[in-house]
Nucleic acid binder design. Structure first.
Lengths: 172, 172
DNA sequence: CCTATCATGTAATCCGTTACATGATTAT
DNA sequence: ATAATCATGTAACGGATTACATGATAGG
């Protein structure tokens, strides 16, 4: 029987799962968690429980295939289907407008929070992130897909913007 | 009877409502919608229906007070309570770590989307936003609260970073 | 051998999104 | 008058978050 693709709207989370599955043969939810943590998780995060629920929904809709490990923990292992690849490609080429900067500290400043202390906490994070990103960048051997490194560049640009902004506020 | 503050965890949306209510005597959900649209909505958005549901929950928890307009449409009108102000202040002074950059176009690039066309669509938006922000900035007479203008500066810095990044990709 | 941390997963709750609906006002 | 847009709101559903739980592994 044909899988029911009408039940499930695809969300960004869906495409993150499909995206990673398109890059490898198979993956368990835990594998996905690891992948997300060191990559897109840096600018688009969600709890790991989603990585158990989401592939299940995608499987119900026919975008991924599920199998069980034999023996041991019998973990669920997912792989992308042809329909999944198709959905991913369609989404990928569709242009997008805006973006959002979800920064709780900025919200606090907006509503009257004292800038200097907020800025100091914020800067610490931002500087650490920037260092982390620049360390990652040195690992670019040109082997991995281009998009991964491009988005790293975006992260670096924004981290710098962030540091510029919060530095001004930290100065009192 | 004492309001039940245990039922309701406060989310960023809650604080946005509390924040605006703290700046004026009263507001209807529609007023809030207008306020959000021209300010925080630029970096932290959500559908207007939340601005009907959220004050209700806050009222149940005692953070805001609800009254009904007499005559006409009998709209709901909200105002912040002392407990609400307290909650807002506590939140405001608590430092925050990171932030998120929720950019669907960047996700697409990460997962192999063709950069150039995505960049072109994206740049259009980013440039328009930057202009809008800079126009807004000229309206700073020093009357409104400081935080509003500070966060506008943040928006400008990030918009510029964004333009730098996507310009590189648009160049092919 | 004990304890801490990693690995792996499930369940319940609820916020946020989507969709719908209707009155008022303005433009043509 | 009619269409279009703004103003104002409600209902349902589902994805996301929170919380909990247990088995493996490594360090001391």
């Amino acid at each position: 029987m044909a899988p029911d693709q009408s039940v499930t709207r695809l969300t960004p989370t869906s495409y993150i799962v499909l995206g990673f599955l398109s890059m490898r043969e198979e993956a368990t939810p835990y594998d996905l968690k690891q992948l997300v943590a060191v990559s897109v998780g840096n600018f688009w995060s969600f709890p790991h429980s989603q990585l158990y629920a989401e592939p299940e929904r995608l499987a119900a809709a026919g975008y991924v295939r599920e199998r069980r490990e034999q023996g041991g923990r019998r973990r669920r292992v997912y792989s992308i289907t042809q329909a999944g690849r198709k959905a991913l490609e369609t989404w990928r080429e569709e242009p997008e407008g805006g973006y959002e900067l979800r920064d709780p500290a900025l919200l606090k400043v907006f509503f009257g929070g004292d800038p200097a202390p907020l800025a100091r906490a914020r800067l610490e994070h931002a500087r650490a992130k920037l260092e982390e990103y620049e360390a990652l960048r040195t690992g670019d051997t040109g082997e991995e897909p281009r998009g991964i490194w491009l988005s790293l560049e975006a992260g670096i640009e924004h981290a710098k913007a962030d540091i510029r902004f919060w530095s001004k506020l930290a100065a009192d």
